[in-house]
Amino acid sequence: MGADLLPFLSMVLVQVGYAGMNIISKLALDSGMNPFVMVAYRQIFATIIIIPFAYFLEWKTMPKITKHILFQIFISSILGATLNQCLYFVGLKYSTPTIACALNNLLPAITFVMALPFGYYNLLNMETVGIKRKSGQAKVLGTSLCVGGAMLMSFYKGSLINIGESSIHWRYAENIRQRNSSNEENTFLGPLLIVASCIAWAGWFIVQTKMSKAFSAPYTSSALMCFMASIQCLVIGAFEEQHIKEWSLASNIRVIASIYCGAIGSALAFCLMSWCIQKRGPLYVSMFSPLMLVIVAVASWALLDEKIYVGTAVGSALIVVGLYAVLWGKDKEMDQQTSIDEMSLGEGMESAYKGEMELPVYSK
């Protein structure tokens, strides 16, 4: 019972942490904090927090860091940290936490599509589309639903869904939004940037999967990735925001958001997800993604007075259904591949056994 409960609670904690990160980050952005400044601070705090884990858990056992590995970590830092997070937080600035979380569920479908032309199926345990099999049809259908849901959320708002008023509005959040009323939502630009961040994240997943085969030290690679991303984001932030006062963390919400994103959004989430992947596999971890959408939607309505529209609700539902269709197809495909591997292994052992029995006859 405990062996099943602990991974479940860990993944629920990760999704709650990510949900809190979206809401707190949105408040910091609404207060006027530059998203590039926030990302730079996130990478700095994440680096500081992950380094002790890398030192105490992997320093004596990690493989040799070659120039090729460093180059792959550099590419990973550009895709998975700098591009992904800069695009995501700028998109969050012009969007809402609910829309951002819903579009984040596009990641499995985008990874599936990107793996096709680059030929990374053997790395991702997806050898072929297999359109004649149910698993292949589910992945194609799920990808189509995810893309359709994302387009619906980007281009259609619809009428307001009247679900009543919350009686527990966060007065602090209301004051921030009133003081910074110029931060208007952009129905098209915000979702578009978040989708672009998912594309960058999918590219990181492909590079990371290949790199992990030769360098199995996730904490060390993450620490190096965050360190490289810190430099990249500081350079980008310096060009984007040249006023020193805008880098100040004197505001409570800004320092809380920066530390929270680095500690919870990067360091803690990575450690827990890495542990759960080892215990239950990547598919188990992916299936908890829609939970963040539910938590953020409820919390945003209750605390931030976020309005829910028909386009957001229907698009979110399509993305969640599509996500589970892709994951179901991937799960079935992996089961089929496991069965094939077991059959091949059995035939190989049988051939080897016969070869040993026939060897004396051959030697004569």
Rank of each mutant, 00 (worst) to 15 (best):
M273W: 00
P282M: 07
M126R: 15
N105W: 05
T312V: 09
N105S: 09
Q278C: 04
T111D: 06
K134A: 11
S230W: 02
F56H: 12
G203D: 03
S76E: 10
G262L: 01
L303R: 06
C101E: 14
G190A: 08
I244Q: 09
M11L: 15
I264W: 02
T66S: 14
G32W: 04
W247Y: 07
F71A: 14
G17P: 08
L318C: 12
I131M: 13
G136I: 12
T143M: 10
W328E: 12
A115N: 12
W247F: 04
C198K: 11
A28N: 05
Q178P: 00
L234F: 13
S154A: 15
T143S: 15
G17I: 08
K93V: 02
S166A: 10
T312E: 12
L304V: 00
L224N: 03
K330W: 01
V361K: 10
F227C: 12
I163D: 01
S216C: 07
H169T: 07
S25H: 00
Q43H: 11
M287P: 01
Q72W: 09
V296K: 04
Q208G: 00
S344A: 13
R179D: 15
Q137T: 13
T82I: 02
A250N: 12
A302K: 05
H243Y: 10
S77F: 06
P218V: 06
L70Q: 12
M126E: 14
Q178V: 08
N104R: 09
F53H: 08
T143E: 07
L57A: 11
S266R: 01
S339I: 15
S289Y: 05
L293I: 14
S266P: 01
S351W: 12
G315F: 04
H68S: 15
S363M: 13
S144D: 01
F288Y: 15
S300I: 03
G311D: 08
L70D: 10
S316L: 04
S344Q: 15
T98F: 05
M153C: 05
T128C: 07
Y260N: 08
G322C: 03
T338Q: 14
E240N: 11
Y55R: 03
W275A: 04
A257P: 04
I78C: 11
A40G: 13
M225Q: 15
D305I: 00
E306M: 01
V320A: 12
F288C: 08
I24P: 00
M349W: 13
I131G: 02
K67A: 11
N175A: 14
A299K: 02
S166W: 05
E184S: 13
I75D: 06
I199D: 03
S197A: 14
K64S: 15
V14I: 13
P97Q: 11
P63Y: 10
Q336F: 05
G311W: 01
Y324G: 04
Q208T: 06
I110N: 06
G262V: 00
T187I: 08
L249G: 06
A109V: 10
D305L: 01
L192T: 14
Q242F: 08
Y55K: 02
K245M: 07
A200T: 03
L103V: 13
A196I: 03
A257G: 07
D30Q: 13
L224R: 03
R42L: 05
K330L: 02
